[in-house]
Structure formats: structure tokens, C-alpha cells
Design a protein around this nucleic acid. Structure first.
Lengths: 213, 213
DNA sequence: ACCTGAACACCGTTCAAGT
DNA sequence: ACCTGAACACCGTTCAAGT
């Protein structure tokens, strides 16, 4: 969308690095084309117009940069402080989904498979648990319900970011007419796998799970 | 567990490669130590006592090898043909969990984030969908319930393989007493995060979700 | 048919050095 | 304080060659 960095400015003094600039460029790069697998310190540096080693002045390692991205993304989530428990859980669930759709490669590839044990991640978990606490549940009951809900949420978002919806699959899947012949029930689900149905599916699944709690 | 390959046999003619031997060694290597990130064609070849390029005689690329591992692992799952729908879903859910615990790095890192669109993967999906079909549901209703259940299952297994249970987290998480002070509800859940509780949590969550359907 | 050696274009990271 | 160049130990993969 912009043939800017590597080409133009030769004499204009280069905009200095900053964690803000690095992190925004990283998040943008991760969501482009080949996603997380194609993300590298060297590719990021190239995009920023610096040498790869410059990044080590700002983050001691690639993992530290990734953790900064995690905090930046997860830190944008909040849990409403008022409303019924179900309303509050519904709100943060939908907000998490919006976030995942905004950063599918990063959320699916890094956020979901990682423990939320940064200060920012723990603060989010604490706010979520407060909903269950406010509903009058003790630790054992809260743990059960919290985890069941989270498992549905993680699975649904994994599916929309890395799974059947857009994620990688086999290199040479069977052709469609073979699928129709050998796996008729799978084939019959085809229409419901379209992105147009995802939001409705997510909301219906969420209500079913909240009901089951 | 065995100082065998790289050391001893110099004069004994090396056991020839085979896809069986390669795949078993790969699955074993993936579950060792540093997991999927440390897995490489070169490391696998080293372990097998051959050069990395030899693997290309058996699989055209690393991705093809991974897909073969996917089929080998996922192909071991089956859905009971008889029983009530809930019994059949419960059985395959528990079997999937056992499989995930036997291959946590591979299931969490490769199977769950990938589309089940190999012939083997599609056959499993078809068998799962047959349960919903046998329950008399039309395609729309089956799709809703199937996906909600799968989302819970994927999320739960992701958590047990790559998430809070054993997966990677921030390099420098806040120390425990800081957590206890700032995030008391999170800290109160500590005891329930122990592996001893995982099976009970999984079963309880599964029943809640099946009830919600 | 099965395996190898050399080479190419990549990685993350360290270290000493430049401004 | 901020950035760089050269180097090290890795990657996956191609290609021509060995047996």
C-alpha cells in the first residue's frame, strides 16, 4: 500500500527509531502477506530502514519485542465494570473477537498459545475473574466457569484466525468433488464456513456456553 | 534416554531410512526438550544419522513431512459408531485429549492451528458430523452445535498443551508475591491450575458445553 | 533407488566499533 | 545514547553428483 521506506528518502535524515515506531511497524508487518512465519528481526529492520542490530538497542531479544506486542494488543482489552455477569462476559468476548480479527496473525499465532502472565495479561484475567467473583461464586466454582468460558473463547478465536476459516492446511487437499463424494456431511457444511456466518456462529456458540455455565 | 545414533555404530551398516522410521523419530524429537521451535530438518537428520538432504528423498519439503505427521496422529482418532450422541461426543473428546497429552508439542503447535483438510482429517470431521446427523439435526443446526463443541475442545486442548498449563509465557513474569498483591483473584485460582485438576476441569467443561447445546 | 557435498539465501544474536 | 559491520552458528532447499 506504500512504496515508501526502502526507496525514497536518501538525503532526508531518517526518522529516529522508538519503541512506538518499532511496535507499530512490527504489528503491521506481521499482518501482511505471509504472516508470523515471515516475520523476522531482519525483515522488520529492513522495513524500518535500519540494520537488524539496531533493534537490539530497544529490545534485548526478539522474544522481548513479541512480549511488548502482546502487552500492546492485550492491553487494549477491557471488561465493563457494570451490568449483569452475562452482559459483561458477552461484552469482553465480542471485544476480544474484534481484536482478533484486527490482528489475526498475531493473535492466532502468538497471543492465544501464550500464557497471559505479563502484568498486562494478568490485569485482564483479574478483571475477567472479578465478574465471576461479583456473581457470588467461590474460587472453585469461579475457576470452573471461567476456564470453560475461556476455552470456548480461545477455540473460537483460534478457528477464526488460524483454523478452518483462514489458517494453513495441507498442501494438497482433496479436490472439492472428491470431498462431496467421500465426505458429504463435511461438504454440506461448506456454506456455513463462510465469513458471513462467523459472527452469528460466534454469538450463538457464546450464548450456548454461557447458558451451560 | 539412549546415547545411540550419533555415537556407536561406525562399522555396522546403518539401518535404512523409511517413512515409518522418519516419522516416529520426528514425533519423538518434537516432544523433546525445546519442542516444535527446535525441530528442524537438520536436527531430525542428525538424530537419524543421515544428512539433512536425505529426507528430501522421502518428503518433497518439511511441510509435507509435517502433514504426514498430522495424518499419523489424527488418523489414530475414531468416533464410536454406537451410543447416544452425547456419549459418542464425550468419547471422542476424551480420546482427543489423551492424544493431545501424548503429543502436546505437536498437537498444540501444529494440529490445532491447522485446517483438518487432508483426507484423514476430513474423515475424522465426517465421523464427528455423523453424530449430529444421527441425532436428527439438519445442516444448519448440526453446524452450529458441531462448531460450538469443537471450539470448546480446541480451546481446552490448546490450554493444556500450549497455554497456561505448560506453554510459553513472558520471559520475566511478575514474582508470585506481586501477583498475590495486585491480582488476588488470579492468585486464588493457582491451586486449580495444577495438572491434577485438569482432567476434572476438562470433563466438567465438556458436560457444561454439551448441556448448553 | 537412495544418499551426499557444496552452495544459496536466509535466520537470531554477539561483539567490538563507530558517531 | 543510538546505530552499524563483521562474524558465528544456525535454518530450508536446490542441484549436480555419487553408489
Amino acid at each position: 500500500m506504500a512504496p515508501r521506506e526502502g526507496r525514497s528518502s536518501r538525503k532526508t535524515p531518517r526518522e529516529p527509531l522508538s519503541s512506538e515506531r518499532i511496535e507499530l511497524a512490527a504489528l503491521k508487518l506481521i499482518e501482511q502477506q505471509e504472516g508470523l512465519p515471515a516475520f523476522s528481526q531482519r525483515a522488520l529492520a529492513r522495513r524500518l530502514g535500519v540494520e537488524a542490530m539496531s533493534l537490539y538497542h530497544w529490545y534485548p531479544s526478539q522474544l522481548d519485542l513479541m512480549n511488548a506486542l502482546f502487552d500492546r494488543v492485550v492491553g487494549s482489552l477491557g471488561v465493563p465494570a457494570s451490568g449483569t455477569p452475562v452482559e459483561r462476559l458477552r461484552a469482553v468476548s465480542l471485544a476480544f473477537r474484534e481484536l482478533a480479527l484486527r490482528h489475526p496473525a498475531f493473535v492466532g499465532g502468538f497471543v492465544l498459545p501464550h500464557r497471559f502472565n505479563t502484568a498486562v495479561g494478568l490485569a485482564l484475567l483479574e478483571a475477567m475473574l472479578r465478574v465471576f467473583h461479583d456473581a457470588g461464586l467461590d474460587a472453585a466454582a469461579a475457576s470452573r466457569r471461567f476456564r470453560t468460558w475461556m476455552h470456548f473463547l480461545m477455540g473460537a478465536l483460534l478457528d477464526e484466525t488460524s483454523g478452518y476459516a483462514r489458517g494453513p492446511g495441507a498442501g494438497a487437499p482433496p479436490p472439492d468433488d472428491d470431498v462431496a463424494r467421500q465426505f458429504p456431511l463435511v461438504a454440506a457444511l461448506g456454506p456455513y464456513n463462510k465469513p458471513a456466518h462467523h459472527e452469528a456462529q460466534f454469538k450463538a456458540g457464546l450464548e450456548a456456553v454461557l447458558r451451560g455455565l
